[in-house]
């Protein structure tokens, strides 16, 4: 798969069947170019989490098409056999809370993904340190997660999401626990990293502080996405 963003066409997700069926996603269309950071905004119950789970290959959509780079990964059924490997090698995840592994130091938290992919420990740690340096947390490389501030933890989580150079990163409210200054710093980092690694980043958020920073925003309401041009203010 080459790093050429993500394309979603008419994605649908239905939970249950018959009278109790719920259409969580009715019509989702998105296109995110490599190096682009877009916002995904919607009220509770609009289908944001379901969309993230579908994009993250955690749950199977009911219909539609998803392309990662120039490869179809879903077309009314998964086209990839090993979803675990797909997640590991091609999708980065950033969560609302950092969810770092508490018993691994910062370097190994980041290096874990390449290690899981079978890279030698030394090489994985080198990649991790390069990324930590780029994110300005290399000085905490040997610290344990519990010794980091909230902002540092989130930067380490960003490093973990990017360490395998995935074509797409899914960020689920990554600034929720942070103050304005730190939240904007995180968005700045995501913008820089997206450009540097040609990664398409989708940021699910409710955070009013960061919404003006997106150049493009997808609204989701009742399982349907609507595209909107954002203010694109430099964070």
């Amino acid at each position: 798969m080459s790093s050429k963003g993500i394309l979603i066409k008419n994605l649908k997700k239905r939970y249950g069947s018959g009278d109790t069926a719920v259409d969580a996603l009715k019509k989702v269309n998105m296109r995110i170019a490599p190096g682009e950071v877009v916002g995904l905004i919607g009220p509770s119950g609009s289908g944001k989490s379901t969309l993230l789970k579908c994009l993250g290959a955690v749950i199977e959509p009911t219909a539609g098409q998803m392309m990662l780079g120039n490869e179809i990964i879903y077309d009314n059924g998964w086209k990839v056999k090993d979803l675990r490997a797909l997640r590991r090698d091609h999708i980065g995840f950033i969560f609302q809370a950092p969810y770092l592994i508490p018993f691994l130091d910062v370097t190994d938290n980041v290096a874990l993904l390449p290690m899981l992919a079978g890279k030698p420990n030394s090489q994985a740690r080198k990649h991790a340190l390069d990324l930590l340096t780029a994110l300005d947390v290399a000085h905490r490389a040997k610290a344990m997660p519990s010794q980091l501030s909230g902002g540092e933890q989130q930067r380490v989580a960003i490093a973990r999401a990017l360490v395998n150079r995935p074509p797409v990163v899914l960020a689920d409210e990554p600034t929720a626990p942070l103050d304005s200054k730190r939240a904007l710093a995180v968005i700045r980092i995501l913008n820089n990293m997206a450009k540097k690694f040609e990664t398409a980043i989708i940021v699910v958020t409710h955070d009013e502080k960061i919404i003006p920073t997106f150049k493009r925003i997808y609204h989701i309401r009742d399982g349907v996405t609507y595209e909107e041009k954002g203010a694109g203010i430099e964070p």
Binding site: G56, R84, A85, R88, L113, L116
Partner: peptide, 16 residues
């Protein structure tokens, strides 16, 4: 449980 969920999400095998 949360760490295991994260490990599985980021691609850790069941054997891990």
């Amino acid at each position: 449980i949360r760490e295991i969920a994260v490990l599985k999400l980021i691609g850790a095998k069941n054997s891990t």
